Amino acid sequence: MRAKAAAGKRVHLVDMYPSVAVSDLPDGIHPNAAGYSKMATTWYNALKAVPGSIGGDDPQPPAGGPCTATPRIVGSWNGGFQGEVTVTNSGTAAFTGWTAKFSLPSGQGITQIWGGTATGTGSVTVQNVAYNGALGAGASTTFGFLVSGPGAASLGAATCTSP
């Protein structure tokens, strides 16, 4: 790394330590699904801070304003779990309408949702409903859902776009 920096290459360090808790490492070494999700979010945020590293060199936010989506598992049981995603307007202007996307493991699917309209299995797309689509700058809303299917409770990193 020092040699690359000395050669004029840009080097960026990403510290995972504060992002991944010991509880996210069931065997003490390898992360579980929640750990991988936290790692992905940390990497993504680090890359967003480097101009031109994601989506080319255009520093302009997407049309309609930026938004973020933060998933979490609320509870789990054998054969399913409850999850929620918080959608936040991270821009400086209000927007109307948002779309969040995240992934579920193979064989798992949403059986019930509130605060959004879901389509897809595996790769899930959720759009706002009439009462929670308008978000002022800094405002947020949350949608929740139930998932059933085999395997451990797991949510992939979520993305958000606004029209």
Score class of each variant (00 low, 15 high):
residue 23 S to V: 09
residue 41 T to Q: 12
residue 113 I to G: 05
residue 10 R to I: 15
residue 29 I to S: 11
residue 102 F to S: 03
residue 113 I to V: 10
residue 162 S to R: 07
residue 95 F to S: 01
residue 93 A to R: 08
residue 1 M to S: 11
residue 153 A to V: 11
residue 20 V to M: 05
residue 33 A to T: 07
residue 102 F to M: 07
residue 129 V to Q: 01
residue 72 R to Y: 04
residue 71 P to E: 09
residue 17 Y to H: 07
residue 107 G to S: 08
residue 161 T to W: 02
residue 153 A to W: 00
residue 41 T to D: 09
residue 63 A to R: 08
residue 78 N to S: 12
residue 37 S to Q: 13
residue 72 R to D: 02
residue 56 G to R: 13
residue 139 A to Y: 04
residue 58 D to R: 11
residue 60 Q to N: 15
residue 94 A to R: 04
residue 64 G to A: 08
residue 156 G to P: 09
residue 147 V to T: 03
residue 1 M to D: 09
residue 119 T to E: 03
residue 68 T to C: 08
residue 15 D to I: 09
residue 158 A to R: 01
residue 101 K to Q: 07
residue 69 A to S: 09
residue 89 N to L: 13
residue 7 A to M: 11
residue 47 L to G: 06
residue 160 C to I: 04
residue 32 N to T: 06
residue 152 A to Q: 11
residue 131 Y to F: 10
residue 161 T to M: 02
residue 108 Q to M: 05
residue 8 G to P: 14
residue 139 A to V: 08
residue 63 A to D: 07
residue 4 K to A: 15
residue 111 T to H: 03
residue 147 V to E: 02
residue 123 S to C: 11
residue 19 S to N: 03
residue 45 N to Q: 12
residue 62 P to E: 11
residue 72 R to G: 02
residue 83 G to K: 02
residue 122 G to N: 03
residue 39 M to N: 10
residue 87 V to N: 06
residue 106 S to E: 08
residue 56 G to S: 15
residue 1 M to C: 08
residue 87 V to D: 04
residue 51 P to M: 13
residue 137 A to K: 14
residue 116 G to Y: 01
residue 118 A to M: 05
residue 116 G to H: 03
residue 96 T to A: 03
residue 39 M to L: 11
residue 38 K to H: 10
residue 3 A to L: 15
residue 87 V to T: 10
residue 59 P to E: 14
residue 45 N to V: 09
residue 43 W to F: 14
residue 31 P to A: 05
residue 156 G to E: 06
residue 17 Y to E: 00
residue 145 F to A: 01
residue 135 L to N: 02
residue 131 Y to R: 05
residue 64 G to R: 02
residue 32 N to L: 05
residue 131 Y to G: 04
residue 95 F to R: 00
residue 147 V to S: 03
residue 145 F to G: 00
residue 137 A to M: 12
residue 153 A to M: 04
residue 132 N to D: 05
residue 130 A to Q: 01
residue 53 S to C: 13
residue 61 P to V: 15
residue 128 N to Y: 03
residue 45 N to A: 10
residue 22 V to D: 07
residue 10 R to A: 15
residue 122 G to I: 08
residue 95 F to I: 00
residue 15 D to F: 00
residue 50 V to T: 10
residue 98 W to F: 07
residue 66 P to L: 15
residue 43 W to D: 00
residue 133 G to M: 05
residue 108 Q to W: 06
residue 105 P to L: 12
residue 159 T to M: 06
residue 5 A to F: 08
residue 78 N to I: 14
residue 81 F to H: 05
residue 97 G to A: 08
residue 63 A to C: 09
residue 127 Q to L: 01
residue 125 T to H: 00
residue 81 F to I: 08
residue 54 I to R: 04
residue 32 N to P: 03
residue 64 G to S: 10
residue 147 V to C: 06
residue 17 Y to W: 02
residue 89 N to M: 11
residue 149 G to N: 01
residue 99 T to Y: 06
residue 103 S to F: 08
residue 124 V to G: 00
residue 54 I to T: 12
residue 90 S to N: 03
residue 161 T to C: 01
residue 67 C to Q: 09
residue 50 V to L: 14
residue 140 S to W: 06
residue 153 A to Q: 02
residue 97 G to H: 01
residue 57 D to N: 15
residue 34 A to H: 09
residue 39 M to A: 13
residue 124 V to D: 00
residue 36 Y to C: 10
residue 46 A to L: 06
residue 82 Q to D: 04
residue 58 D to K: 14
residue 62 P to W: 11
residue 94 A to T: 08
residue 8 G to C: 15
residue 68 T to R: 14
residue 96 T to V: 06
residue 25 L to K: 13
residue 154 S to T: 09
residue 82 Q to L: 12
